[in-house]
Design a protein around this nucleic acid. Structure first.
Lengths: 177, 177
DNA sequence: TCGAATTCATACTTGCTTGGTAGGAATTAT
DNA sequence: ATAATTCCTACCAAGCAAGTATGAATTCGA
């Protein structure tokens, strides 16, 4: 029941962009993203263009380019993103709502496995289709503040300085060990 | 988030054996099983020996051989079976309870993705680790009775006659258009 | 005791998927 | 002009999924 690396990286990217944007840094570069989560740059690049094609992010090319969100965070749900990248959430095709395929069993109505897997698929969808990026970002941010930690891409690195007002930056940045 | 065919077939087999056994037919042959669900015989064979090795079923060899359950149905939960065949339920390794592996992200505590996926993994486990084979079999059987249908392997085929008492058999068997 | 029917064990195959690399073209700020 | 970025496309190696194939070991009925 694994999420692919592709899917994982896609979600990480969205969340990171979301956090950064919430902190006043709406655009992130692939290299920053990759560095933060230690992901392969070129692979992530591909994933982001896929997210772009689907309308989740938009990009600016050239020097000082990067990616930013293309929709409001509270309109981005995780289920659709995963479906886009990894396919259906359902464990078996005959319980998929978005791409149903009949299975080989002789009698779907009385199929115990189907019933069980429908429960599973609903449980999964209940989480992934209900949470929005806004919620996850907000919760994460709250946790970060509570523990007085700042996300990596807001710490100065390779000359890129946070765009946050200095007093707020200082209030948040504390340490990372 | 797919269940593999292996996993699917394993569960189907268990459920079918469970139903048959509940109807007084404790032992099923691979060929019957495969015929009923239209699965490749030799593949199913492999899966059953795997289930046997793990103690879910026992077998009798030779003519009139077959497979039967090795444990009480109310002691067989679906989660462990799937873990056996397909590996962990968790979408990403860092939220697996049974085989945790740290992920690449710099800070697990404040990882939004991890939090989300933990929810997903719990939702999945809540279904699969709580349902027992006994429950699924019972529900299926109730449905079958309500709709007056009999499972295929209890209908006479290749000379194998149901072991159910005839009056009960007649009451259940009605039609399968 | 023989033959048929079954499970058991192991090796192999075929195509697909995953998780990337590689190389370069197009775009943009300085 | 140049450096830094995104964009595009092709490629690739390894592993995995879903089986096939072959034959041995076991068990029954005749």
């Amino acid at each position: 029941m694994r999420l692919s690396k592709r899917g994982e990286y896609a979600l990480r990217a969205l969340i990171d962009i979301g956090i950064a944007s919430e902190l006043g840094r709406p655009m992130l570069q692939v290299s920053e993203l990759a560095a933060k989560e230690k992901l392969p740059v070129k692979f992530l690049e591909q994933i982001l263009t896929q997210l772009k094609a689907a309308g989740y992010v938009k990009s600016k090319r050239g020097k000082l380019g990067g990616y930013s969100l293309a929709k409001r965070m509270d309109r981005i749900r995780f289920g659709p993103v995963i479906r886009l990248i990894d396919g259906p959430l359902a464990p078996i095709p005959c319980v998929s709502q978005t791409s149903y395929v009949r299975c080989t069993c002789p009698d779907e109505i009385h199929c115990g496995l189907r019933m069980l897997m429908l429960d599973v698929r609903n449980a999964i969808a209940k989480v992934l289709d209900r949470y929005t990026l806004a919620e996850i970002v907000e919760i994460t941010l709250r946790k970060l503040r509570r523990d007085k930690v700042t996300p990596l891409f807001l710490q100065p690195s390779k000359g890129l300085v946070p765009i946050l007002p200095p007093e707020l930056t200082r209030k948040i940045i504390v340490s990372r060990n």
